[in-house]
Simulated scan of single mutants.
Amino acid sequence: MLYRLFLEHPRCVNETYSAHMGAAFGVGGRLLVASFKCFVHGLVPGLYKTAGSDAICALYKDVAPRKFDQPTF
């Protein structure tokens, strides 16, 4: 059970547990920053006009090549 939860997916994508965690944290951090900018833009429309769409496009370019045929929960 622990192998399936913690090691199976990172090994399927040729990463160590720590490398996979770092990559996931990096994507998550970028999403958090983009989310904050979107909320600020909602309050003050003149700020961060394209931050949300820019972040989506940049993340897609980085994540799309890494797609693997992996089932999720």
Rank of each mutant, 00 (worst) to 15 (best):
R11D: 10
D69M: 03
R66D: 05
A64Y: 12
A24K: 03
E15L: 12
L2A: 12
F68N: 00
G42Q: 08
T16D: 14
V27N: 00
A23L: 10
G52S: 07
V33T: 11
E15D: 13
V63L: 13
P65R: 03
T50W: 08
D54Q: 15
V33Q: 03
T16K: 10
A64T: 04
S18N: 08
G52R: 05
V27E: 05
P71H: 01
A34N: 02
H9C: 08
A64C: 10
V33L: 09
E15A: 13
A58L: 05
T50K: 08
F6R: 14
Y60D: 15
G42N: 11
Y17V: 01
L47K: 11
A23R: 07
T72P: 00
R4T: 14
K37V: 02
A34F: 08
L2W: 02
L43W: 12
G26S: 11
L59F: 10
E8A: 15
F6C: 09
V27C: 06
V33I: 15
P10C: 02
P65A: 07
L43H: 08
V63D: 04
Y17G: 05
C38R: 11
A19P: 02
E8K: 15
T16Y: 10
I56K: 12
L7S: 13
H41F: 03
G29R: 07
V27W: 12
L32D: 08
G46Q: 14
P10R: 00
P71A: 01
G26W: 09
G29Q: 03
P10L: 00
K67P: 01
A23N: 03
Y17C: 00
D62C: 13
T50L: 13
S18T: 02
M1N: 02
R4M: 07
P10E: 03
M21Q: 10
H20D: 05
A51Q: 06
Y3Q: 09
V63F: 14
G22M: 11
P45Q: 12
D62T: 13
T16P: 12
A23S: 03
V63M: 12
K61C: 08
K67G: 05
D54H: 00
K37S: 06
A58C: 09
F68Y: 13
F25I: 15
S35F: 15
K61Y: 02
Y48S: 00
R4Q: 14
V13S: 01
Q70Y: 14
G29I: 06
E15M: 15
A19T: 04
A24Y: 13
F6W: 12
P10H: 04
M1R: 09
F6T: 13
